[in-house]
Computed example of a mutant assay.
Amino acid sequence: MPGATLRSTFAASLAALTLATVGVGTAHADQPRMYSARNDLQQAVGALQAALDDKGGHRVTAINLAQQAIDQVNLGIQFAGGPPDGDFAPPPPPVGPAMNNADAWLQMAVGELQAAEDNKGGHRVSALNLAQQAIDEVNQGIQAGGPF
Rank of each mutant, 00 (worst) to 15 (best):
G111P: 03
L19F: 03
E137S: 08
A116L: 05
A66N: 05
I135Q: 15
T21G: 09
P92I: 07
G56Q: 05
R38H: 08
Q42V: 09
F10L: 13
V138N: 01
D40R: 03
Q143C: 00
L113Q: 00
G122F: 07
D54P: 00
R33G: 07
T61I: 10
D118M: 06
Q43A: 14
A109V: 04
W105H: 14
Y35A: 05
E137M: 07
A109T: 05
A104F: 04
A15K: 13
G81E: 08
Q143D: 09
D40L: 02
Q31M: 08
P94F: 03
P97T: 12
A4E: 15
V110K: 00
A62Q: 03
N119W: 04
A16W: 06
D87E: 13
V125N: 10
D30K: 08
N39G: 13
N129C: 02
N139R: 15
K55M: 03
M1K: 12
D85L: 06
D53N: 09
K120F: 10
V24L: 14
G76R: 01
A66T: 15
M99V: 09
D40V: 04
G121P: 02
G141R: 01
Q143I: 06
L17D: 13
H28Q: 12
Q132V: 06
L130C: 03
L113K: 01
Q132P: 00
P93N: 12
G86D: 06
Q68C: 00
D103K: 13
F88E: 08
L128H: 01
S36G: 14
G145C: 02
L75C: 06
L128Y: 06
L65P: 01
N64G: 15
F79A: 12
A116K: 02
A144D: 13
A62V: 05
A127I: 06
A98E: 15
A144P: 03
N39K: 10
A89I: 13
D30W: 10
A66W: 02
H123G: 01
N74D: 15
V73R: 01
V45W: 07
L17Y: 05
E117I: 08
Q31H: 14
I135W: 01
V125G: 01
S36V: 03
D54Q: 09
G122C: 04
A69I: 04
V125I: 07
S13R: 13
G141L: 00
P147K: 07
A27F: 02
M1P: 11
F10K: 14
P90H: 09
I63W: 03
F79L: 06
V125D: 11
V45E: 14
G145P: 02
A69S: 08
P90V: 09
T18K: 13
D85K: 08
Q78C: 03
G111W: 10
G23Y: 04
Q42P: 01
N64E: 15
G82C: 02
L113F: 00
V24N: 04
V95A: 13
R38M: 10
Q114A: 06
Q114N: 12
H58Q: 11
F10H: 10
P32I: 08
I77C: 00
Q72D: 15
L41C: 02
L128R: 00
